[in-house]
Amino acid sequence: MPTKTRIKDYPKWVVTAMWVSALLIAVGSYRFLIADIALVMPAMLHHALERPLMFYLHIGLAPIALALLPLQFSNGLRKARPAVHRWLGRLYGAAILLAGVSGLWLAYTTEEGPVAAVGLGLLSVFWLWTTGVAIRHAMARRIAQHRVWMIRSAALTLAAVTLRIYLPIGAVTVGFEASYPIICWLAWVPNLVLAEWILRRGRGAPMGATA
């Protein structure tokens, strides 16, 4: 089983940049509340028009899971307020359950082609699976296993961040239509590979944990 690690094992700027990015993306995802979907999410307009329930479940709840990550990986909160950590974990799991199921449906009905559909569909499946296993271990008080699976879940939740890094790069290089199907894989596969690399190197505790 992977051992715990200390936050000093990771560059502080990397941890800070990751959590700040997660919070900014989470907040920015609610721009649809003050602007027309056609303006702020044109590629998703067909979902908003044809399947609004699934669409708004996904874009409304996925940012909640993203925003909760820094709190759930906070060593201070986990030690000082374990009950808060558990309740936020339940909220994180519920948000991913609904966002993942709706994301799977949006992937199935996407108009961006089969490559994008399979990429997004597998992301939803693995997101639901890793989070479900993490919660199951937490309920059984298998804390070490819970932390390992939460790292995998977090890697997939952070696909929301990497997606937004790749989208403008793809748009200004080969264009949205050509790049989007590949980005639907790039947004999460490298994240999960990196998580597995960290775990296999024995860094199985959340960032912020101490030995």
Rank of each mutant, 00 (worst) to 15 (best):
L23K: 15
L23A: 13
L23M: 15
L23D: 15
L23N: 15
L23P: 15
L24N: 13
L24E: 09
L24M: 14
L24Q: 10
L24K: 13
I25S: 14
I25F: 15
I25D: 10
I25N: 14
I25V: 15
A26N: 10
A26M: 11
A26Y: 08
A26H: 11
V27M: 12
V27G: 09
V27L: 15
V27Q: 11
V27C: 11
V27S: 07
G28T: 08
G28F: 12
G28E: 10
S29Q: 15
S29E: 11
S29L: 06
S29K: 08
Y30F: 06
Y30H: 05
Y30G: 04
R31V: 10
F32W: 14
F32L: 02
F32S: 01
L33E: 02
L33P: 02
L33H: 01
I34V: 12
I34S: 11
I34C: 04
A35Q: 13
A35S: 10
A35F: 12
A35M: 07
A35T: 06
D36N: 12
D36T: 08
A38I: 05
A38V: 06
A38Y: 04
A38M: 05
A38P: 09
A38F: 05
L39M: 08
L39P: 06
L39N: 12
L39I: 10
V40P: 03
V40E: 01
M41G: 08
P42Q: 04
P42G: 04
P42Y: 07
P42N: 03
P42S: 06
A43I: 05
A43E: 09
A43F: 14
M44W: 14
M44N: 13
M44K: 12
M44S: 14
M44L: 13
M44Q: 11
M44R: 06
L45S: 07
L45E: 13
L45A: 10
L45M: 11
L45R: 11
H46I: 04
H46S: 09
H46A: 08
H46E: 06
H46K: 08
H46T: 05
H47A: 04
H47P: 01
H47F: 03
A48S: 06
A48I: 01
L49Y: 05
L49A: 04
L49I: 02
E50R: 07
E50C: 00
E50P: 00
E50D: 08
R51Q: 01
R51W: 01
R51N: 00
P52T: 00
P52Y: 02
P52N: 00
P52W: 00
P52F: 00
P52L: 00
